[in-house]
Amino acid sequence: MVRENVLKWTFGTLAYTSLLVLLAITVVLFQQGLPLFGRVNAWEFFTGIHWYPTHEEHPEYGILPIIIASLCTTAGAMLVCVPLGVGSALYLNEIASFRQRAFLKPVVELLASIPSIVFGFFGMVIVAPFVQKLLHIPVGLNLFTASLILGIMAIPTVCSLSEDALSFVPRSFREASYAVGANRWQTLTGVVFPAAGSGISTAVILGMSRAIGETMTVLMVAGNAAIIPKSIFDPVRPMTSTIAAEMGEAVIGSTHYHALFAIGLMLFVITFVFNIAAELISRRFRIKLGLGA
């Protein structure tokens, strides 16, 4: 009895530790980010297009180009990883033989274990010069290259979760479809895919969450110019790399310091919304398939 209680309390405490950490992070983000708006007009902060936080006489704190950069790289990454991720999930679940699947799935998941700095290095040293030469553009470190690399990095998340969603579709659904005379393709597009749809949406949203939060890779391959991109071959500077590049030198308590925290806060809110959306959709998905909430 005593032992049981001890175990219960130990593991309970452990489980609540992460909640505590989350709370602490949230409190610090708000505490350090909000003071900015006492010094910089919030409207100017979100809509300003000039980011010169360290200029001595006239510092400017406009993060619109930085927000747009994050949204663009994430959208670009989705264009790469949704077809590849969902496509491989469909192949793995529906077409691949048992042996192929046993080999391919771990390989795709292995992609997730490559450190992001390795992706960044690969992008900077190999992909960027290649893209630059191939397309005859002035610079290879740009929105396109960043999206490409981020997209590849998000494949394991999207593929593995989509595959799980597909495998949750009950056998009876398929059998019913075949019974009314549908062929394999019709079953796949008409029954299995719609049934797994919200599960796949969850996978895509979590992939987006992964792409928008990625730091090291974009710091290395996005080119780091705080401008609103006019083409996909313009360099950009997402929120994460701005924080990473500048936090080390920002004087604690300065406007620049609080501005970086405010960017962090913004990023936190975005990924939080993504994750809540993913959770809600996946709950609906489980209910729809009769798996319980």
Binding site: E56, A225, A226, I227, P235, R237
Partner: peptide, 13 residues
């Protein structure tokens, strides 16, 4: 002389 670097400059670490 204190002027601001153009926005589209690529910033390297």
């Amino acid at each position: 002389k204190g002027a601001k670097v153009r926005g589209d400059a690529l910033m390297q670490a």
